[in-house]
Amino acid sequence: MTKRNSESLCPDILLKNISKSYPGKTVLQNLNQTFLSGHAYCIMAPSGTGKTTLLRILCGLEKPDCGQITGTEHLRFSVVFQEDRLLEGLSAIENIRFSAGKNIAAEEVQKLIKDFLSETDFKKSVSEYSGGMRRKVCLLRALLTPSDMLLLDEPFSGLDEDSRKKAVALIQKYRNGRTLLVSTHDSRDAARLDAEIISLIS
């Protein structure tokens, strides 16, 4: 992996009285939370309770209606979105290198994804992949891109039990000390990742 990942020391992130509403619905209300640098967290909450909104606020895609966030100013984020958000015309390797850039050679990516994809799939565009395969590419893209914090929004959806375990192992292997925040419905994921559980239900 890259030098910067292993050396990255991101500051603690503090959320103070964060609230966010959409027309007709309040998703976050006076949320106070601290994310310690290098720790792993798992957000467990039912659908529609603000898991994705929280991740979007953290990486700067949305602004809270009120409240204060400190510690995210100069952070680089790697994200697995709830939807895949892959470049459909490109292969898995090309998609990973799109965000990872020159930090990682194509051969290295190929070596890493051998566990997940067969060699015949390497050259195919991701539009031909199954849902599970696409999810794995998203996860690898986030893990192999140099960053300070990993935000993974339901990264295991569409994966069978075996792939889920492999994905957890991959996260542990390539996390490189980065702060990790995963949203999931399954408490076993939190246990496997040795992550602190955050419940968004007040």
């Binding site: 459909e88 015309g89 490109l90 565009s125 696409r134």
Partner: peptide
């Protein structure tokens, strides 16, 4: 034209 992101996301929200 290139071969990038021609089609939109395949998966559901």
């Amino acid at each position: 034209s290139g071969k990038g992101a021609i089609s939109h996301d395949k998966t559901k929200q």
